[in-house]
Design a binder for these strands. Structure first.
Lengths: 218, 218
DNA sequence: TTTGACAAGGGGAAAAATCCCCTTTTTTTA
DNA sequence: TAAAAAAAGGGGATTTTTCCCCTTGTCAAA
């Protein structure tokens, strides 16, 4: 029987290498290679005709993160099943990743047996949610009444730019200059995001953005 | 030849399990067990007379983090060599961990061969710094002129409490009430920390605290 | 074609944050 | 033990932030 081929994308070499050992220990799977980020993955995919069955994709990576990478894969290699593999258990992140086309979302603190189960599920059903992820998603659906407008909606470019600048020591006046907009327009973005994220202050905005990986805090 | 015994403390089960496989693949080392956090480690250490040679200690863990765990080990099992193993490459964190008695500090993105080297170094010399960590420490020593007062000094309890509350949507007035202090005293803490961390605004304070793991952002 | 949503921007006021200089009381430390 | 440093607090002014209500133009759906 031919083994299912797996590629690991994770900037933590030690983890990637260790995980490769774990996956290779499963009879049905084998790791083709592992790379440090999205750019390297694309380079490898482009120069090789050996298309993997599954990609295990980390989200927080320097150079090219999991979201950008996922977009590229969906555009260019839609046949590959992608399993997101992250430490980030925030709703916003999970939904974003699944919406981009990931076939599952695994948290790095899962038990290895669950991991094995997930690989098999993705091969057969094409989809897998770990328990905590499923719970999170369920909460997201049942928890409120304005999910479409709050969690679901993604920010416009200009709002995202503002958000990133708001997560710095710049004042709103400086942000306005930087974005070539009136301070009053910036004020509008601020109020809009306050409502959207249900926060009361710029500090809240920063915390929300960091918690949900909308800006990279480190 | 008796193998050197290793214990892994990391809340990411998948990583811990994978790493265990990697370590066991080295002839000179074997993993006794792995646990999810400091509390579990202490429980295991207390109930077993088999003391490990090396502990691989993650820093960001729920329940009982790496710092607290390190303190306990130094007090109660000082013969064990502890290698900190974290994704966090910030000066403040590294220095804090080494000051608490860790015999080395490894970043999770290191190459497995470096990891192997580190294990051996710690057994023979009792100390290991990975390249980037050494660079960071050197920068810390040569980089400025007031390192004793800025990076080195650790915050007092009351300042830390303030910092944690400052990373919240509370206003300073509310923080003052919460801490049973005058708003003016709080203002003093604020100014002191601004100078200490070289930041210009509360946003800067929050970012600094998060980046340096002084508060848990998630 | 009209209505309506929405982005951009404005006025103005209240609240919070920032800054600088000062006093008093402890606590260290030389 | 005297001097120095640190902790707690104050006065007061200037910026920033936050909030609410309003105008104009654009673009799309009804």
């Amino acid at each position: 029987m031919k083994k299912h081929s797996v590629v690991i994308v994770d900037d933590h070499l030690l983890f990637a290498q260790s995980l490769q050992g774990l996956v290779n220990a499963f009879d049905e799977f084998e790791v083709l290679y592992h790379v440090k980020n999205g750019s390297e993955l694309i380079k490898k995919l482009l120069e090789s005709e050996n298309v993997p069955d599954i990609i295990l994709l980390d989200i927080n990576m320097p150079v090219m993160n999991g979201f950008e990478t996922m977009e590229w894969i969906k555009e260019n290699r839609p046949s590959i099943q992608v399993l997101a593999l992250s430490m980030d258990d925030h709703e916003e992140t999970i939904i974003k990743m699944l919406r981009l086309g990931a076939k599952g979302y695994l948290l790095k603190d899962i038990h290895p047996e669950i991991f094995y189960k997930a690989l098999n599920e993705v091969i057969s059903n094409g989809i897998y949610y770990s328990e905590r992820v499923a719970t999170t998603l369920l909460n997201s659906l049942h928890g409120g009444d304005e999910k479409e407008t709050s969690k679901g909606k993604q920010l416009k470019d200009t709002e995202l730019t503002f958000l990133k600048l708001a997560c710095t020591e710049m004042t709103y006046k400086e942000i306005a200059q930087e974005m070539c907009l009136s301070p009053k327009t910036i004020d509008g973005y601020r109020e809009s995001l306050f409502k959207h994220f249900k926060v009361k202050s710029r500090i809240g905005l920063v915390l929300y953005a960091i918690r949900n990986n909308m800006v990279n805090s480190k």
